[in-house]
Amino acid sequence: MLIIPCPYCGPRPELEFSYGGQAHVTRPTAASNPSPAEWNAFQYERANLKGLHAERWRHIHGCARFFNVVRDTTTDEILRSYRSGEK
């Protein structure tokens, strides 16, 4: 079981969290009139990488906040976590 460091609450067991997919995917606004390619990239294209992966988690059974985690997908090691909007 992963021990996930919530940037608001500290390290907590994975059971308290829900997974939120790849982080830093920019959502085009409707007003920007994104091209089909741009919109498809936002909707469907994910890195699925082997190695360091920035991903979103939500401390759903805690502070309920979304935040980001950098995890090595080959070892599950979590290198750091940070708040949404931060890099």
Partner: peptide, 13 residues
């Protein structure tokens, strides 16, 4: 509720 929170927290904070 989860979806609303997602957009509120991460798209329109």
């Amino acid at each position: 509720l989860g979806m609303m929170e997602d957009y509120l927290q991460t798209e329109w904070p």
